[in-house]
Design a protein around this nucleic acid. Structure first.
Length: 493
RNA sequence: GCGCCCAUAGACUAGCGGUUAGGUCACAGCCCUUUCAAGGCUGUAGCACGGGUUCAACUCCCGUUGGGCGCGCCA
């Protein structure tokens, strides 16, 4: 039994796109479930758009998501190199083979001529395909063009008869008429292969068994199949399994792009999303279980994933649901891990500058985050949720002052509370709560008439963590000092 | 223009001839509650349209409409 081998083959022309991440995830899931190999192949044959930065951004994105590869950049296997630009000789060799076998030919048309040809065809409402004018050039004409110094590309001699069909895990049986295909370019003038050619040579030479990729490649597949056959790899292609995933669209139903907001994995990382949440959300775009389960542990995802349960229709990316899911993952996080993950965001918010961070401060941060854990949706929420407990000072929210502190009698009560707080033997959530409730009873007012002023006078806001719990974190001294400070500030005005 | 693919609420989806069309996000209300959340309960909302096939169609077939993709010396 042949070992299962899958690949994710991004072209490094930008960051790891959310759609690319989904494709990578599905490949990874399938490979992991089958106990096969997951290969990362960099398709960097676009001489003008490929960049080093993109390569590292993609690797970074993959690593962040935890989509580890068995072969690829930094992980040698027996099928490398894994950058297509390092495999040029291979493509050249096979292109030559096709040339010799009469299954490909040199084309002398210039890009300008081709462009003009396409435009003309479009205007005449004909399919904008290459007309094959160099296909059957007589030898004399060839030599003449050759002599004129014309640059050449190698084109595939696409069969003009018959149809190419294949089975797709998601789409089922698909058929394309060969006559509708044109003689596409295999090798560019530069000697660099086109995607259509490189993908065939690589999938074969890397012994790929399953191709899982975006739906946008569905109509490319027959071309590739034809090339496989022309190279004499019929047996291989007959065993190659295809799965074309439905696309991910933007909210308006058009292809997900920059104008729809964040599309790169990096952006989600920087906005405070957890990789597990992103992965989980992505898994639900075009795949589902029979019982419509939503939340999956990574291992569970691997176990339950199957191509048979991938949907056919395009899915619209819903940031709102991702956000909800991120909250779910944050609530499920172990507090220690959540603290570690929040640290970078606390640092950039200026709440943490020490390095290393003293254990005492770390403990404080942990207590604070624990208070607000259930409320955090994004790691970027953390600083503004707990800053008033971390920083020495705090500011009074204007509306809070207006709504709560300006109520007649409130300041007097606060002064009294501060005094009485001093007498508390222990300053815990339980003790302060008991005190405040008793105090309310004593004064003949509702609990809220005490709670709210205490909250605003110690935090400056009307919303926050559970009052008595954060008072405990804040501590007796600071709590009293803040109430007194509030009293002073507003009793004079 | 030609070809291919797709079509269940605002969004993701389950369904695979007979269901009160199920779940999740979002939205609304109620409960819980010192605030904000979280949680619980309830609710609003869906099979694109038109023909067939069938005792019976969301489900099968055809067409229409709508959307997506491909037709690059981009991948």
């Amino acid at each position: 039994m042949q070992k299962v081998r899958l690949r994710f083959a991004p072209s490094p022309t930008g960051f790891l796109h959310i759609g690319g991440a989904r494709t990578a995830l599905f490949n990874w899931l399938f490979a992991r479930k089958a106990g096969g190999a997951f290969i990362l192949r960099i398709e960097d044959t676009d001489e003008v758009r490929s960049t080093e930065e993109s390569v590292s951004a993609i690797l970074r994105g993959m690593e962040w998501l935890g989509l580890n590869w068995d072969e690829g950049p930094g992980k040698d296997g027996n099928f490398g190199p894994y950058f297509q630009m390092e495999r040029l000789e291979l493509y050249k060799k096979y292109a030559e083979q096709l040339l010799q076998a009469g299954k490909a030919y040199r084309c002398y048309c210039t890009p300008e001529e081709l462009e003009a040809m396409r435009t003309r065809a479009m205007l005449a409402k004909r399919p904008p395909k290459y007309d094959g004018r160099c296909r059957d050039l007589p030898q004399t004409k060839r030599e003449e063009l050759e002599k004129s110094g014309r640059k050449t590309v190698i084109r595939f001699k696409t069969p003009t008869q018959g149809a190419t069909e294949f089975n797709d895990f998601v789409r089922g049986h698909v058929t394309f008429e060969n006559a509708l295909l044109d003689d596409f370019v295999l090798l560019k003038t530069s000697g660099i292969p086109t995607y259509q050619f490189a993908v065939v040579v690589d999938d074969y030479s890397m012994q790929i068994t399953h191709v899982i990729r975006g739906d946008d490649h569905l109509s490319n597949t027959p071309r590739q199949i034809l090339v496989f056959h022309a190279l004499g790899w019929g047996d291989f292609i007959r065993n190659l399994k295809f799965a074309h995933l439905s696309m991910i669209m933007g909210p308006d139903g058009s292809r997900l792009s920059k104008r729809h907001g964040a599309t790169s994995v990096d952006e989600y990382k920087n906005s405070g999303y957890l990789p597990e949440a992103v992965l989980n959300y992505l898994s639900l775009l075009g795949w589902s279980t029979e019982d419509s389960q939503q939340l999956f542990e990574k291992e569970e995802l691997i176990q339950k994933f199957s191509l048979e349960r991938c949907g056919k229709s395009a899915a619209i990316f819903d940031p709102q649901k991702l956000l909800w899911m991120n909250g779910e993952y944050i609530r499920k996080s172990k507090i220690g891990e959540l603290v570690q993950k929040s640290l970078p965001f606390l640092k950039s918010a200026g709440l943490v500058s020490e390095d290393p961070i003293p254990q005492k401060k770390l403990d404080l941060i942990q207590s604070c985050i624990a208070l607000e854990q259930e409320k955090i949706k994004l790691l970027t929420d953390v600083p503004k949720l707990i800053d008033f407990l971390i920083e020495e000072d705090f500011k009074w929210d204007e509306k809070a002052v207006e709504k709560v502190l300006k109520t007649p009698g409130v300041l007097g009560l606060l002064a009294e509370i501060a005094e009485r707080f001093k007498t508390l033997a222990e300053f815990t959530a339980a003790s302060t709560e008991k005190f405040c409730k008793d105090f309310a009873l004593e004064k003949g007012v509702k609990n809220s008439a005490i709670f709210h002023p205490v909250r605003v006078s110690t935090s400056g806001r009307t919303q926050g963590p559970s009052l008595f719990h954060y008072l405990e974190v804040l501590g007796k001294e600071k709590s009293i000092a803040r109430i007194l400070k509030t009293y002073k500030q507003f009793s004079t005005t």
